[in-house]
């Protein structure tokens, strides 16, 4: 029990930006859903089992037009395809997480991924519980935020315009952190450059999958150079 409390205490500070972002983004989502006639029950159910911010926002279109489940599935796959990268990145980190693993994978949203991939648990803190609490806290913020929004409905309106930028800011800060700690900037540059080029070519609603393919291709091309560097650094370590 003590082990879990230590892990929770270590995890919480990392999730504060997400707490802010999800409370308001979730609330905005709940308000939007209720304005379309979907009560707080539907909103909470959706946030609880899907836990996919951009996917859920997109799904409002499907909830308010002609019933087309296959199209909803395909659009979700396309928008959330980026999660495949998160999984590959965390294969190693989540390798020995045991019975917590299914939940860790279930809750692997953008925000949880960005924290987990850039944060090492402090010394003496159980790694698995640390990742578990980051995931659980983020999940709770999202459900709680959308519940608040669903209950407030469209009665209350306050000017939160621009507040969703808190999540962009979180990702930018993580990007800078990675940039500073990593000597090889190629992967970061490839990620941004390929995505921007694909965004220009394919447009905002179709660029994710082409970006992923271009990024993978570019990384594979650069692997050779990386291997040699790796070999060198290993040799110098010995």
């Amino acid at each position: 029990m003590k082990e879990k409390i230590t892990a929770l205490k270590a995890a919480f500070p990392h999730t504060i930006p997400v707490l802010t972002g999800f409370t308001f983004l979730g609330a905005a989502y709940g308000i939007l859903m209720s304005s379309k006639g979907y009560g707080v029950g539907w909103t909470v159910l959706f946030s609880l089992i899907a836990f996919a911010g951009s996917g859920q926002y997109m799904a409002i279109t499907f909830l308010t037009s002609v019933f087309n489940p296959l199209y909803a599935l395909l659009m979700t796959l396309m928008i959330n395809a980026r999660h495949i990268f998160y999984g590959i990145s965390l294969l190693d980190r989540y390798k020995d997480t045991g019975r917590l693993k299914p939940y860790l994978i279930f809750g692997l949203c953008d925000e949880t991924f960005s924290i987990v991939c850039s944060t090492e648990p402090p010394k003496g803190v159980n790694k698995n519980w640390f990742y578990f609490f980051i995931t659980l806290l983020d999940h709770s913020y999202w459900v709680l935020g959308s519940a608040i929004g669903g209950m407030l409905g469209s009665i209350v309106s306050f000017n939160t315009k621009g507040l969703d930028f808190v999540l962009t800011a979180l990702f930018v800060v993580i990007f800078i952190g990675q940039w500073k700690t990593q000597k090889d900037h190629k992967p970061a540059i490839i990620g941004v450059l390929c995505s921007v080029i694909c965004l220009i070519i394919f447009g905002q609603s179709n660029f994710i999958i082409p970006s992923m393919i271009t990024i993978l291709t570019a990384l594979t091309i650069f692997q050779k150079g990386h291997k040699e560097e790796n070999k060198l650094s290993k040799e110098s370590l010995q």
């Binding site: 980026r82 590959i88 991939c117 490839i190 990620g191 390929c194 995505s195 905002q204 992923m212 692997q223």
Partner: peptide, 25 residues
């Protein structure tokens, strides 16, 4: 080695893609 390499470098590319995704509009 290939998957190992990808799991080492992808976090950096993935955050880059995520930032562009946030700014796409």
């Amino acid at each position: 080695s290939y998957i190992g390499y990808l799991s080492r470098v992808l976090p950096y590319s993935a955050i880059g893609l995520l930032i562009v995704f946030c700014l796409k509009d």
